[in-house]
Design a protein around this nucleic acid. Structure first.
Lengths: 210, 210
DNA sequence: CGAGTAACTTACTCCGAGTAAGTTCTTCCG
DNA sequence: CGGAAGAACTTACTCGGAGTAAGTTACTCG
């Protein structure tokens, strides 16, 4: 009779696979977020969940696999938050600003999530790199789409240029986010977004009619 | 008499510390560049140099330390190449273009060096992160300097804005470089540099007189 | 030639990723 | 109800690589 209720949390019994996977993923997200990829051991996550290590391997295959699962989920949330604001904006200029602000705010408000995303570079071996790139590419695609929308409809768009611009913005925002966290989240999301907007918008206008 | 000459390479005898350190660093650069941080073991580097592992630890302290030493040296070369071109340019606009082109060309021509720089993210634990940031900050300082030079002399420059712009450019160029290598070094350095120049220059002009 | 020291080695420890080979639960069919 | 089938889960390892304690050799200078 150590448990508070009988029906709510059945002590620590077996769960079905889906539920256990979620539990493990939550724990992994938390611990990776606190200690980083290197600093976290699989034993630690297993102990935290109250489960043995091989179970995690059965469900996620490897440490990289588990980390990647965290990363995908976090990036999906971030992408969702940003694209929601972007799509809600009345015009392209405001969409860009809204997207930028949301990006920086989200990372301020989810510092643990952020550490995981920053640690993305940890995945250097095996197929995990590929998968991590695909996760990032989703973001680049969103940006590229915005850039394309902003170009004149009739003319051929130079797809290479679009890609360059999209990767520029992706790289810039990631690096700025890292810099901000080392700087006590300063300058504010609004200030960074505004400066970036001022810096880039003119250029986009120019490219539009070149 | 297995060696080709007697005087050139004195078989495999002791060297003084400085020489050995260089030898180790060269080997580390090569092997890290080929196999990445994770994929490289200290034993492997030791074997390659023909020396025992504890010697490396005596000279470089840790795997992170050794990697960091490689990183610093490589980044210093890169910084030197870029700043040389920047300083040689007749005006700010051409300086920016020259700097960008040089950056991308250098990385095309030194793919192994580049892998090491990309793997920078591997350093997440301990004091190595700090040191790695300082190495990167050198670059950001060069960019910030250029941005400042381009602003009107009399007025207060908004130092926060300068920092934001500098980190933007740093982040963008790094991410673009990674993207290009996964894309068979395409688009060309010139094209990327030109697009980036077109994108950013207008914005810099605008900020100049705001 | 012998002390002193710099260069270097052997032979470990320890920790963490990953695994082989089971052992319990739980369900569902007769 | 009984008992097979399979899912959930564990114990008890291996193996490799980072890092180290305690020396051993070679060079150098008085």
């Amino acid at each position: 009779m150590t448990s508070t209720t009988d029906n709510a949390v059945p002590a620590k019994r077996r769960r079905d696979r889906a539920a256990r996977e979620r539990e493990i993923l939550d724990a992994a997200e938390r611990i990776f977020g606190e200690r980083g990829y290197q600093g976290t051991s699989m034993d630690e996550i297993a102990a935290y969940v109250g489960v043995s290590k091989p179970l995690i391997y059965q469900y996620y295959g490897s440490k990289d696999g588990l980390f990647l699962a965290c990363l995908s989920r976090l990036r999906a949330h971030l992408l969702e938050a940003v694209s929601k604001e972007v799509l809600a904006a009345p015009d392209a200029e405001q969409a860009m600003y809204a997207g930028l602000v949301t990006w920086f705010r989200f990372l301020d408000e989810h510092p643990r999530a952020w550490s995981v995303i920053v640690d993305e570079g940890m995945l250097t071996t095996g197929p995990a790199v590929q998968a991590a790139d695909e996760v990032r590419a989703d973001f680049v695609e969103l940006i590229a789409m915005m850039v394309r929308l902003n170009l004149p409809a009739g003319r051929d768009t130079d797809e290479e240029e679009v890609q360059i611009i999209a990767w520029t913005i992706s790289g810039a925002t990631e690096r700025l986010a890292i810099w901000r966290t080392k700087n006590n989240n300063s300058p504010s999301p609004e200030k960074v977004a505004r400066t970036l907007q001022d810096l880039l918008w003119q250029g986009l206008e120019t490219l539009r009619k070149s």
